[in-house]
C-alpha cells in the first residue's frame, strides 16, 4: 500500500520536499508509517514530540490504522491569527 504524505510549513524545508510517497505493508498504523518516514527524513524525527498528524482533514494519533486512499499530513504546531 502506498501512502502519500505532505509536509507543511517548515517541515517541508526539513524534509527537503513538500510531498513524498511511503510504501508500507498492511495493516500499518500511523506510527509504523512514521518509523519508515523518519529513516528517510531524520531531521523530522527530532521534532516528533511536537508533530501534528492528520489523515485527510482530521487529526489522528499514532495508533490510527491506515487504509488505501489515506493521505497523511505532518506539520508543526499551528499559528493562525
Amino acid at each position: 500500500m502506498t501512502i502519500p504524505v505532505t509536509f507543511w510549513s517548515y517541515f517541508a524545508e526539513l524534509a527537503g520536499c513538500s510531498e513524498t510517497v511511503v510504501t508500507v505493508s498492511e495493516p500499518t498504523t500511523v506510527d509504523g508509517l512514521l518509523a519508515a518516514l523518519y529513516q528517510a527524513h531524520p531531521a523530522l524525527a527530532e521534532l516528533r514530540r511536537s508533530t501534528l498528524i492528520a489523515v485527510g482533514v482530521e487529526y489522528q494519533d499514532g495508533g490510527y490504522v491506515l487504509k488505501p486512499g489515506d493521505h497523511v499530513s505532518l506539520f508543526p504546531p499551528v499559528q493562525g491569527g
Partner: peptide, 14 residues
Amino acid sequence: VIDEMKQVVPIWKK
C-alpha cells in the same frame, strides 16, 4: 473561537 483556532486550524506564519 480565536483561542481554539490557534490550537487546531492548520495555518502557519513566517
